[in-house]
């Protein structure tokens, strides 16, 4: 976000930032996202590799939480079945606002390979919870996870916090 670059600004020898509080808050929010890992299938294994030494997902400031109440976003990795769908909904509802959803893999995007004859597969997790970022792939490569995470950070850092309704033209 380049917030720190502003420290070079020549007011009184530097060290002062002039900016919006909103930007500061969003900067903080986007760089420290805690997530609830909802590992369901093959994509979760790729996500485990993503978490391990080679790719180091934590460099995005993400910390895995096991409780939805402490999580900023939920990562749905894998095939959502009907037996599981209710549980996802419950966990999503337990998360505190503001909350985000990343849907990982073709399965949770749209049903993936199981879209046609999968009588027990929910064709896309967006049928039950709102999704912010879709990561395509079956399974997505670790680079795709990185891209997806960066997209989420971008989204968070451009969000309106104050006077939201007015600025978005709702009234």
């Amino acid at each position: 976000m380049g917030l720190l670059n502003k420290l070079d600004d020549p007011y009184d020898g530097g060290g002062i930032i002039l900016g919006k509080v909103e930007e500061l808050l969003n900067w903080g929010r986007s760089k420290s996202d805690w997530y609830l890992h909802f590992g369901l299938a093959c994509c979760a294994i790729e996500f485990m590799a993503m978490n391990a030494s080679h790719f180091d997902f934590m460099r995005f400031g993400t910390i895995p939480r096991t409780s939805p109440r402490q999580a900023d976003f939920i990562m749905v990795t894998g095939t959502v079945t009907f037996k599981m769908a209710d549980r996802i909904k419950v966990l999503y509802e337990q998360m505190a606002e503001p909350k985000y959803v990343i849907s990982v893999g073709s399965c949770s995007n749209c049903g993936g390979p199981y879209w046609e004859h999968g009588y027990h597969v929910l064709k896309g997790v967006d049928k039950i919870i709102p999704v912010d970022v879709y990561i395509p792939g079956c399974p997505p490569r670790p680079e795709a996870f990185e891209e997806g995470m960066m997209k989420l950070q971008e989204k968070i850092s451009h969000q309106a916090i104050f006077n939201k309704r007015k600025r978005l033209g709702i009234e």
Partner: peptide, 14 residues
Amino acid sequence: LGYLHRSFEKHCEK
């Protein structure tokens, strides 16, 4: 079980 039942055997028949 069954939280990841993805209808494998049905797919095979199709």
